[in-house]
């Protein structure tokens, strides 16, 4: 049976989800920085008036992007928490399974009742294994959403650079801000990619 408890898989998986949570914290931090930056950019665009109307619109987009990204990361984090709980339970069950299996193997003629206990154990184990798989698939979907969001962010931060060129006396300030946007978004993408590959590897 493919779902027989194996300690190594689960503890490796547990480490994977714990790492995921750490990665999420990094993304949330950058999203927060983008939010603050976008807020300042909106104020700057407001001061610049007419010449930075487009820049203001883009900054608002970036700000809502950061909010959306933070929300996505929160959902990811909830799922990672759920997965860590499920896998901890799996680890506990694996230990019980191992001891019961050893007992069954040592008994010359295991009774049908004892066999039933083992079957129930395996069924319960495979149920939890499936739940972990579902959580992982959901996590991967959300990571994909996050990746698309970041690609969109990259595109609009480029537009911000173009808009900055129309900023006349504010041009330099706006260019600096758009450059920072670009950098921040570029920082997030590899983190998201790393989270995706970390999850897919299993």
């Amino acid at each position: 049976m493919s779902n027989k408890p194996t300690h190594k898989t689960s503890s490796g998986e547990l480490a994977g989800f714990v790492r995921l949570n750490e990665g999420i914290k990094g993304v949330v931090l950058i999203a927060f920085q983008i939010n603050i930056m976008a807020l300042n950019a909106i104020l700057l665009a407001h001061r610049a008036g007419e010449v930075a109307l487009g820049f203001g619109v883009i900054s608002k987009e970036l700000r809502s992007l950061s909010v959306e990204l933070t929300g996505l990361m929160q959902e990811l984090s909830n799922d990672a928490y759920l997965a860590v709980n499920l896998i901890s339970d799996l680890l506990r069950q694996e230990r019980r399974y191992r001891l019961l299996k050893k007992a069954t193997d040592l008994v010359a003629n295991p009774s049908p009742a004892l066999r039933d206990v083992m079957v129930r154990r395996e069924e319960e184990f495979s149920l939890i294994t499936h739940r972990v798989r579902d959580v992982r698939l959901r996590l991967l979907d959300r990571l994909e959403d996050a990746r698309k969001l970041c690609q969109f962010g990259t595109a609009i931060s480029r537009s911000a650079k173009i808009e900055a060129a129309y900023g006349r006396e504010y041009g330099r300030a706006l260019a600096e801000v758009s450059q920072e946007f670009d950098q921040k978004i570029q920082n997030i993408l590899p983190s998201i990619e790393a989270l995706c590959t970390g999850m897919q590897r299993r």
Binding site: L99, A103, V107, A113
Partner: peptide, 19 residues
């Protein structure tokens, strides 16, 4: 203790059904 459960269970099974 849980670690010696298999040994107790098996030894017991030579006398009575541990269940």
């Amino acid at each position: 203790g849980s670690e010696i459960f298999p040994a107790v269970f098996a030894a017991l099974s030579t006398i009575v059904d541990p269940m």
